[in-house]
Design a protein around this nucleic acid. Structure first.
Lengths: 138, 138, 138, 138
DNA sequence: GTGGTCTAGACCACT
DNA sequence: GTGGTCTAGACCACG
């Protein structure tokens, strides 16, 4: 595991999101063991306190469970994972559409922009590409 | 002008984004005078220093210009405004598509979800609606 | 007359320096009439109060003199002009050499850099050209 | 660290330049920890907010980096430091030569004046010394 | 301990 | 009246 850290967001949140994404996308399966605090801390070169906080929060959200003396495991409740996926996707969607509307884009434009971005190269590094036409109209 | 403040983000950034959106969406035109520090501070019930910080950052991004002793004005370089709009839209787009891909959605699913969200109700509060089907497949 | 204004320095100071430079370099001769406040204000698109302040300061430095009802004139005391030239040149020189020394340049390097800059193109827009070698050594 | 403050320039800029000079001249090495906000504030008898502002600007220029919870460090990119040194020296050079030319000095005179100033006493307080001859000719 | 943000109130220079 | 800077003191999140 390796993460590019963004200075604006707390590290523990970034790691949290990273793990949630791994779970939601299936990379970590329900019931899988997750690394120990000290292991992950060494791996990511992060203060163990920060990792500890990450896990605390994940536990609070019932994404991982602690088995005493054995370690931490991804929750085996698949419905919980589904709920998280739905929540994360809903947040992304809402934030995107709301944001685009505030910038003055019309709904139809938004769909077109997404379609173009996605067919172009799969979404990597096309920041702003294909946007020019829409903006001129917007 | 009135803003609902979100506790997670610094106030000065929220005001900054608010003004950038007003400019980019055409509500504030190039060359328009923007409120004075004291005026906006009184209006929003925010400390003048915080407003000052907001404007300072907007100036650094060349979105507004100061005319000494007269006040601050929206930049009259329309190309700059276009660039900002493109940047803001590109960021939103990238964040959305990248995020959805990390959650395990396929490109075609992403397009469909956006299309449904947009045709449903115009993008307001549809958090998670219509997502269920796609998630089951993803 | 036209001046490119730098936002960091007060406008009245910039105009002041501009006029002093014109005098010192001979462009304005001792005894020459200088423009009236309202004339210069209109010409430079500057608030007349600012021009007024400019002239006040120039008068305080005895660079210009007012002849009542006739207008303002460049001082006819050539020794005064010489003194100003010497002062301005001395300031420039001191600021330059002191600054370069603080950056870690040796005296011999400073001379070489100036020589190269001056022989290159006369001092315009060669910001940093020919500096590379010296910096590596410095 | 101690600085003589000049009332004309904002304190935060003076501290900024002071630190940049320390870095550029090698007194602070790449990767070195710089004093904390509170520490430097106490040391210089300056309000911590002012120091904060100083560091914020240095960060914007990528001269220092923040490691969250740990402190601030001189950038380890030596090329960046070189670029800063080049920029600072270029600015000094340009300002000096351009200024002297505006005063009516010829290129050869400028070189001679610098040479004399530097050989005289190393650049300290020779304001105007040795200038007289040149000025008479200029 | 570190930096980041915010408030309150003040003074100054400029137009 | 405008923006720019500075002080004093406070609270918070992060590591």
């Amino acid at each position: 595991m390796s993460i590019e850290f963004d200075n604006n967001l707390p590290i523990y949140l970034q790691i949290m999101n990273h793990i949630k994404r791994q779970i939601v996308s299936g990379l970590l399966q329900p019931g899988d063991k997750i690394p120990s605090v000290r292991e992950l801390a060494a791996d990511l070169q992060i203060n163990p306190n920060t990792i500890q906080r990450t896990f605390q929060e994940l536990e609070r959200e019932e994404v991982v469970e602690t088995k005493r003396g054995l370690g931490r495991y991804v929750t085996s409740e698949e419905s919980k994972i589904m709920a998280i996926k739905k929540e994360m996707a809903g947040d992304l969607l809402h934030q995107f559409i709301h944001g685009m509307q505030e910038l003055g884009f019309k709904n139809q434009d938004i769909v077109t922009i997404v379609k173009e971005a996605v067919t172009a190269d799969g979404g990597k590094d096309q920041k702003g590409a294909n946007l020019d036409g829409r903006i001129a109209e917007g």
